[in-house]
């Protein structure tokens, strides 16, 4: 499913100044099955752009078209993995994972549970299916949240710095797993991050955003072959050139 971001402007009312422009004149095409990273310093509006695509917020002007339809409100087609933990604390892991399927009435209860168990097995979380979220580590919670969206067959995954609260070792393993999942399910993924390494490791295309107001500074195509090696010269070279680009903005 492709996404078209057309002439998006977003301003918030703030107390100090009359209006705060967060995003200015954003145009972006995200192709079906692409993995895009939105990269930029804090305050550049990358999360706002993601929320606009999700339909959780409305643009001040311009429009976003996902799969031929203008985005007006949130939908099960565009799942969001939030930076904060977003599992329902009163449901077990299994109940959390099947939540979306119950909402969209996609299958029978038995089918849904079977599918959920299959997915949980594939990420090594099957032993925790009857646990509650507070019994899981941060990385596990985010894996469950991703499984919850995948199981719902959301063609678009919108991820807002989902691994930022996880330690580096686990973050690398989660990134690797995400690439595996993306190849298998062929989702379109928009991944927000402020971590250059993460962006270079994951993305087909890196959209570098500038702040005050948020606008697209540069779009970088990443054509390093997967699986990417962090120690390879091309990886390091690209990382350095992006860091330079970001420093130029400041």
């Amino acid at each position: 499913m492709s996404i078209e971001v057309k002439n998006i402007n977003k301003t918030f009312k703030s107390k100090k100044t009359d209006q705060l422009s967060v995003l200015e004149n954003i145009n972006l095409t995200i192709n079906d099955g692409e993995l895009i990273c939105l990269l930029g310093p804090s305050g550049c509006g990358k999360t706002t752009l993601l929320r606009l695509i999700a339909g959780l917020e409305q643009p001040t002007s311009g429009e976003i078209v996902a799969n031929g339809e203008v985005v007006k409100k949130p939908s099960g087609d565009r799942a969001v993995i939030f930076q904060q933990y977003s599992l329902f604390p009163w449901l077990t892991v299994l109940q959390n994972v099947t939540f979306g399927l119950e909402m969209t009435k996609k299958g029978s209860k038995a089918e849904n549970i079977a599918a959920a168990e299959r997915y949980l097995t594939s990420v090594g979380l099957i032993d925790f299916k009857d646990s509650y979220p507070h019994e899981l580590s941060g990385g596990m919670k985010q894996r469950v949240a991703i499984i919850r969206s995948l199981l719902n067959h959301s063609p678009i995954l919108l991820m807002d710095e989902p691994f930022s609260a996880v330690d580096m070792q686990n973050r690398h393993s989660l990134q690797e797993q995400l690439i595996g999942v993306w190849k298998r399910f062929e989702n379109t993924i928009v991944f927000v991050t402020h971590d250059v390494d993460e962006a270079v490791y994951l993305a087909d295309k890196i959209v570098i955003l500038d702040k005050n107001p948020g606008r697209i500074a540069k779009i970088v195509e990443v054509d390093i072959e997967r699986p990417r090696k962090r120690e390879s010269p091309e990886f390091i070279a690209l990382q350095e050139s992006i860091v330079q680009q970001l420093n130029m903005e400041d």
Binding site: P74, R78, Y85, T104
Partner: peptide, 27 residues
């Protein structure tokens, strides 16, 4: 708010958000 928004992006309508998210979290 994150739980409400999660439910919405998982396809829950307003009634389901109220019934499946708001009510249990109010218990």
């Amino acid at each position: 708010k994150v739980l409400v928004e999660s439910a919405q992006t998982l396809g829950a309508n307003d009634w389901n958000v109220l019934k499946r998210v708001v009510v249990p979290s109010t218990v």
